[in-house]
């Protein structure tokens, strides 16, 4: 029996009748057409499918779409503002935080949750935050550098905004 769900994705409501067994990641990719969220292991080990659910990082391969009914989801497509990359995306660009790019959407969303709660994380904090995300290219060091880069940029922008007031 299908269920009607309404999920706010990157600020846009998506209403659809779905089978209760549909996974959130499949809703995002196949119903909403947002293929930035990757399916890696589908067993909640690799973290490639990480999105924000009401602001907190979750593995969307192990969440049912019906569990997200009435809630808001942010995917990697929701980070950039038009042509302007998010500070985290800039950080990954500048510090070579990716090679093949498969894990990157999950790494970005996990790091987003981290920086929202800990704006100035240490390397150990960053490594703890991404411990549920697997990267087979970088060896992680450049990802840690990228998150630090983003953290510095975001701090500068906050203080610039404060100065402008």
């Amino acid at each position: 029996m299908q269920k009607n769900v309404t999920i706010d994705i990157n600020g846009q409501p998506h209403r659809q009748a779905v089978e209760p067994r549909l996974l959130l990641v499949h809703f995002l990719r196949e119903v909403a057409g947002l293929t930035g969220t990757h399916i890696g292991c589908e067993t909640s080990l690799c973290g490639a499918c990480t999105v924000l659910l009401d602001g907190r990082a979750v593995k969307s391969c192990t969440v049912l779409a019906v569990q997200a009914d009435g809630r808001s989801v942010t995917t990697v497509e929701g980070l950039a503002q038009g042509d302007k990359l998010h500070a985290l995306q800039e950080g990954f660009w500048e510090e070579h935080g990716l090679q093949c790019g498969f894990c990157t959407p999950g790494m970005l969303m996990c790091s987003h949750d981290l920086l929202a709660n800990h704006p100035t994380p240490t390397s150990a904090d960053i490594r703890e935050a991404i411990n549920g995300n697997v990267c087979r290219c970088t060896g992680y060091q450049n990802i840690v550098n990228a998150v630090k880069n983003a953290s510095r940029k975001m701090a500068k922008r906050v203080s610039a905004r404060a100065g402008a007031r």
Binding site: S44, G47, L53, C110, D113, G132
Partner: peptide, 12 residues
């Protein structure tokens, strides 16, 4: 609780 799972799993 921190050691029990990765951050994404802890959130759910």
């Amino acid at each position: 609780a921190i050691e029990a799972a990765s951050p994404q799993i802890r959130n759910m």
